[in-house]
């Protein structure tokens, strides 16, 4: 569940105000012109930005000023989701804990997450040896492993070609249902999401319509 109560955020000359209620397991698309405040909305929920006033409630708790890693949120960016000098396995493992001293059980969990996105054969590769779609799959696997109830996606597949994008959306759909995630996704192609989401939110000049 996501609840934003009169959240105010100022960036340069622009004042944004968000009021939002998303029910548990709801899947929402966020659309709007670039610079309208879509990413800011996600950053506020994830805790990368702090609001000037207002409250952010996640899963029934007021988490307005909590650190990003303390919130029940995973976020998938458009790019730079992976550390290029670490292997796929290490990148995924960072979802479990901030270090690489894994025990047998944790190693298995990493493998499970990798095979859930169809990448179990690529564990020892570096991200530079992966395609754009594969990179996002790795990042998705890490989100799965973190096992947070809220998933935020900031144009995660917009750099992929349409066919691959649909494939990724199918995968995402499956994972959301399996894990019962609440999902918020910024997108420029809301048409492709038809049948996969519950509603569409429009952001305009820092406000939700």
């Amino acid at each position: 569940m996501i609840n934003l109560k009169q959240v105010i955020f100022r960036y340069k000359d622009m004042t944004m105000q968000f009021d939002l209620h998303v029910r548990p397991r709801e899947k929402v698309a966020v659309v709007g012109a670039s610079g309208a405040g879509k990413s800011t909305l996600l950053n506020l929920i994830a805790g990368f930005e702090l609001p000037e006033s207002g409250e952010i409630w996640l899963n029934g708790e007021n988490q307005t000023y909590l650190e990003p890693h303390q919130r029940p949120v995973s976020m998938l960016f458009q790019e730079n989701n992976l550390f290029p000098h670490l292997t796929v396995e290490q990148n995924i493992a960072l979802g479990l804990k901030p270090g690489f001293d894994l025990n047998e059980r944790e190693r298995r969990l990493v493998q499970q997450a990798a095979s859930a996105v169809g990448l179990d054969a690529f564990l020892s590769r570096k991200p530079t040896a992966l395609s754009g779609g594969q990179k996002q799959r790795v990042a998705l696997a890490r989100c799965l492993l973190r096992d947070k109830p809220i998933l935020l996606l900031d144009e995660p597949f917009s750099s992929l070609d349409p066919e691959l994008r649909l494939e990724m959306l199918d995968l995402l759909d499956k994972l959301c249902t399996e894990k019962q995630l609440t999902m918020l996704m910024v997108t420029h192609q809301p048409n492709e999401l038809k049948g996969r989401i519950d509603r569409i939110l429009t952001v305009e000049l820092g406000r939700l319509l």
């Binding site: 994830a46 949120v73 976020m75």
Partner: peptide, 12 residues
């Protein structure tokens, strides 16, 4: 590149 990622993964 990594500030957001590190923050959400609690690497510090």
């Amino acid at each position: 590149y990594y500030e957001n990622l590190c923050q959400s993964l609690d690497i510090r």
